[in-house]
Design a binder for these strands. Structure first.
Length: 425
DNA sequence: AAAAAAT
């Protein structure tokens, strides 16, 4: 009889069994690194590529900690998981539920709470306590105000998509929550990205943390084969919908997630696609929670072929068999880019990310490439060639013939930045 | 006109 590699990490039989039943044969790199440290009770700040199993990396040790409850102890909230979107809360809760299946603690109780739905059922659900709560920050505070739960017994705080939760939009709420937690606790910060500005903030939450970085090696090279194939297609902004329609048809994309910049644009683009006979829907934060849940369920079930979303869908969501992500509008930042394209190529699958680039967004895309430390070949699609010149088109027909390979010389970079400077008003 | 998150 061979020992399961999960057992070798120190996990209990109940958890090893649940992991096995969910098809986790080998721990991923992030799991192999994080699980032992977390079982030791250490604080952890961990970054690893999208789709590389971060959720299970914190859920498994968290459940093991909960499993160790003294017999007959009253039920108390011992683990708190915070996430930045409602859909992600539901998804993480589902994952915890699955992995907890064989835990002996009589009916380990899990509550998932988020806004946009009535608070009463959530308050009812919390009566008699819960061992784990997965929450979006606003509703959690609301429930605390209603005395539906308290944080005084929390042993473990998890920030999933930690860099997002630590940025300005959540700062107030997060500070209020942290103030209610016991000083002595274990802190777990997970994300695919930790921009330097956020690292400093994270430091204040952590105590002597173990830092785990699987996404890249010191040299900057990717630690694992990049599973997402990235493409950039040059197209006039006005022809993007027609091109998208064409690509969906030509590529026989059965399921495609399209990102745009605004809520309005999700409606507009989805509408246009619907009128050409595609099963498409908009997905953004201004929809009713019912419509949000429905759209995601329809997409997962194959009733929708295209979902046009804001960055609400950029982080964490796991959609099975999603072969393609399209950046119809480019993301604001390289961090957003990483999360968006990480909706495809998950759990060992491959995936395709297509970004539309036009004359006025070329410079911005180049910045994303630079921040990401990766170049993406520009392409054109027959019948959709741009009429307005893009800057990237220039090097191909460079009269000086100075550019041979993909890599740009220092001089070229300087010339580009000079060109950008000149264009500033 | 950036999105998200409490009501």
């Amino acid at each position: 009889m061979t020992t399961s590699p999960f057992a070798a990490l120190g996990l209990s039989p109940a958890l090893v069994r649940a992991a096995g039943e969910r098809g986790y044969a080998e721990p991923t790199a992030i799991q192999a690194a994080a699980i032992p440290a977390l079982l030791e009770g250490r604080d952890v700040i961990a970054s690893a590529q999208t789709g590389s199993g971060k959720t299970a990396a914190f859920v498994l040790p968290m459940l093991q900690q909960l499993e160790s409850a003294p017999r007959g102890a009253p039920r108390r909230l011992r683990a708190l998981v915070l996430v930045p979107t409602r859909e992600l809360a539901a998804q993480v809760a589902e994952s915890i539920d699955g992995l907890a299946e064989h835990i002996a603690v009589p009916a380990l109780k899990l509550a998932c709470v988020f806004g946009g739905v009535s608070i009463n059922p959530q308050m009812m659900g919390l009566r008699g306590g819960a061992d784990v709560v997965v929450a979006t920050p606003g509703r959690l505070l609301d429930l605390i105000t209603h005395n539906a739960l308290g944080l005084a017994w929390v042993e473990m705080l998890v920030l999933d998509e930690a860099d997002r939760l630590l940025d300005a939009g959540f700062a107030d709420e997060l500070a209020r929550i942290v103030a209610l937690l016991p000083r002595r606790r274990q802190n777990l910060l997970f994300s695919a990205t930790f921009p330097p500005a956020v690292q400093a903030l994270a430091q204040r939450l952590l105590r002597d943390p173990v830092r785990i970085e699987v996404a890249s090696q010191p040299g900057g090279a990717p630690a694992s084969a990049p599973a997402v194939t990235q493409h950039a297609v040059e197209v006039d902004a006005a022809r993007r919908t027609a091109l998208l329609r064409h690509l969906i048809q030509k590529g026989q994309w059965t399921r495609v997630l399209v990102f745009v910049a605004t809520r309005y644009a999700t409606e507009h683009v989805a509408d246009k696609l619907c009128r050409t006979g595609l099963a498409a829907a908009a997905f953004h934060g201004d929809l009713s929670q019912g419509a949000r849940t429905q759209a995601l369920a329809d997409f997962k079930a194959g009733r929708l072929q295209v979902v046009v979303a804001t960055d609400m869908a950029a982080r964490g969501l796991h959609i099975e068999q999603l072969p393609v992500v399209v950046n119809y509008d480019l993301p604001r930042s390289a961090v957003d880019y990483v999360h968006r394209i990480g909706r495809t190529a998950r759990a060992g699958e491959s995936g395709l990310a297509v970004s539309f680039v036009s004359a006025d967004t070329e410079a911005h895309f180049r910045l994303i490439e630079k921040r990401q430390g990766q170049r993406v070949e520009r392409e054109r699609i027959a019948g959709f060639e741009p009429t307005e010149p893009t800057e990237a088109a220039a090097p191909v027909a460079d009269p000086a013939g100075g550019i041979k390979g993909k890599r740009k010389s220092k001089k070229d970079k300087l010339r580009e930045s000079a060109a950008r400077a000149i264009q500033q008003p």
